[in-house]
Amino acid sequence: MDLIAMATGFLLILIGLFGALTNRNILRMIVAFAVANTGVNLVLVSVGYMTGRTAPILDSAVPVAEATARVIDPVPQALVLTAIVIGVGVTALMLAYAYRLFKTRGTLDISRYTDLKW
């Protein structure tokens, strides 16, 4: 039961990959990639989790002296904060490119874009 967050994260990655590989509409693929991205973040955060410990914020509940015994690993959290922000940037870029593609070709169906197909 401890691993429920990690299992959810892996499941989200699989769902996202499935959506990205089976959908033909570019917008749906972008949404699927966002889902997979969320799954990766969830897995990363769950790696830093330790049962029975609390958030890495020191206050009256977690005195400085007891910090090493009471807080969870802060490094994955910092990493995921970065990953979320970069994920937003990647999604925005994909949306902008999808808009340009639609404007030039008039379709969002990926199977109509055969330029790089061999």
């Binding site: 890495p56 206050d59 910090a67 807080v71 802060p74």
Partner: peptide
């Protein structure tokens, strides 16, 4: 973190 930087939030 607390002695060196004085920040309560380690992240």
């Amino acid at each position: 973190t607390a002695p060196d930087l004085g920040a309560a939030n380690i992240v």
